[in-house]
Design a protein around this nucleic acid. Structure first.
Length: 430
RNA sequence: UCCUCGGUAGCUCAAUGGCAGAGCAUCCGGCUGUUAACCGGAGGGUUGCUGGUUCGAGUCCAGCCCGAGGAGCCA
């Protein structure tokens, strides 16, 4: 019977076959220990000379790391084995040999591993991270779907800058036309929300920033919900609900992976709504109280964000930034017109901004004014202005970066391990 | 673009300006309960590149190439 290693506990005492790859091998003369992985988990198989005969035993002594093989044997509970079960081998069938597998059980450098990312993802730690990434994405979709959001994806080839400020990747789009890879689906999302009420897009986004930090990729995945007839408070509550839901889902279904990563889960268990809210002004005061050299009126730097988030045991929402340091489409606060109805959610433990969003500007004339003030080409936004010409409503939404969220939940040093094939300033291979 | 650090065996790293080393990996041998197993042996080097200083450079100097961390910008 062919089984998955993840299900081994239900086959105690039975003869089974697993199909996988040799992860490691230890030997003790008349007994071999073959550690096998199959994508669902790892198991120690035990091969004794007496059980398999001289020939098979000698052959097994030469099996190398990552050889693909099928192992048949009897499942047996054993406290000495990691996972509580091991397999007494009766037969091993080799499918493909692996000579000089480059990723050995010892340490390797970052560059070396990234050059072999297609193999590195076989490592236990990497598979744990990628499973958690899957769970985060699945939880995000379930959360939004269950609240009647319609998935309505936005284009990746775009004709112009969405926000005009950040650097875009140009691509040739037939003849003399230049297209740009999207850096946000937001403007299209707003149009979609006017059609469907509550929508979200989920896909890759591209930023040609020459950033070299642990928080940046040039290609990353972002989920962006957008709601018609919604204000800043609705946006914040949605963002809170999403994060609480995602974290509890990972705690619920990916305990084992968090354990592999040696994640302190108590830090995740305290992620409950409501999250603390701070206005930009209060945040600035807080930074001043903590002796941070922060200039009022500017955006927070990486260290500022870390200092702010360290004051709380859960994500903190910073609202009402000065309009002039935010995108052109932010709705001004009616109480203080120089402030925007926006929100940035900063993850705990120094992981920085994981969500950014707010209420969108819904007045046609003011939006025109802002586009001009930001030096953006009016004609490129003509279709976008139509949304204010034909039945404008208060609306808002946000974007959540999947990789930063996963990096935080897994407590990783760098976002590069949260995506199978990271794209960075110096990394386009493999 | 700027600042800091780094580049030596397949990998991770040592080496006062004075014989190029260790662990792991590979190969050979030993061991019936190993947990990155262990023990013995063997093979394995254009010290990132170019030039300079010096009796002598992996080491010091200059330039270049490549990478990492950070700043700015952002999710």
């Amino acid at each position: 019977m062919r089984i998955r290693i993840a299900d081994i506990a239900t086959y105690d005492g039975q003869q089974i076959t697993i199909q996988g790859w040799l992860h490691n091998r230890r030997s003790s003369g008349k007994i071999h220990f073959l550690i096998v992985r199959d994508g669902t988990g790892f198991v120690q198989t035990v091969m004794s000379k007496a059980a398999v005969g001289d020939e098979a035993f000698t052959q097994a002594d030469h099996l190398s790391q990552e050889t693909s093989l099928s192992v048949t044997g009897t499942v047996r509970a054993d406290a000495r084995a990691r996972g509580g079960y091991e397999i007494d081998v009766t037969q091993v069938e080799v499918h493909g040999a692996a000579h000089d597998y480059p990723i050995t059980p010892k340490e390797h450098g970052v560059d070396y591993l990234l050059d072999r990312r297609h193999l590195w993802i076989r490592a236990e730690r990497q598979t744990a991270i990628l499973r958690i990434r899957h769970e985060v994405i699945d939880a995000v979709r379930d959360f939004l779907n269950s609240r009647d959001f319609i998935l309505c994806d936005t284009p990746i080839f775009t004709p112009a800058a969405c926000e005009g400020t950040t650097t875009l990747f140009p691509v040739q789009y037939f003849d003399d036309t230049t297209a740009f890879l999207t850096q946000s689906g937001q403007l299209y999302n707003e149009a979609n929300a006017m059609a469907l009420g509550k929508v979200y897009c989920f896909g890759p986004t591209f930023r040609a920033e020459k950033s070299k930090t642990r928080r940046h990729l040039t290609e990353f995945w972002m989920v962006e919900p957008e709601m018609a007839y919604a204000d800043l408070n609705d946006v914040i509550e949605l963002a809170e609900g999403l994060i609480v839901s995602v974290v509890s889902r990972v705690l619920d279904r990916r305990r084992q992976e968090l354990e592999v990563l040696e994640r302190d889960v108590s830090k995740l268990e305290s992620i409950q709504a409501p999250f603390p809210r701070l206005t930009y002004d209060r945040a600035a005061q807080l930074l001043k109280d903590h002796g941070q050299p922060f200039a009022y009126g500017t955006d927070f730097g990486g260290t500022d964000e870390t200092v702010l988030s360290e004051q709380f045991d859960r994500p903190v929402c910073v609202t009402h930034y000065p309009s002039r340091i935010k995108a052109f489409y932010m709705q001004p606060d009616p109480q203080q017109s120089d402030k925007a109805l926006c929100v940035d959610m900063l993850a705990p433990e120094g992981y920085g901004e994981i969500i950014g969003g707010g209420q969108r500007l819904d007045d046609l004339d003011l939006l025109r004014e802002r586009i001009e003030a930001h030096g953006l080409p009016q004609e490129a936004f003509d279709w976008y202005l139509d949304l204010r010409r034909y039945g404008t409503v208060p609306h808002g939404g946000f974007g959540m970066g999947i990789e930063r969220c996963v990096a935080w939940i897994c407590k990783l040093e760098h976002v590069r391990e949260t995506i199978p094939y990271p794209r960075m300033l110096h990394r386009l291979y493999p």
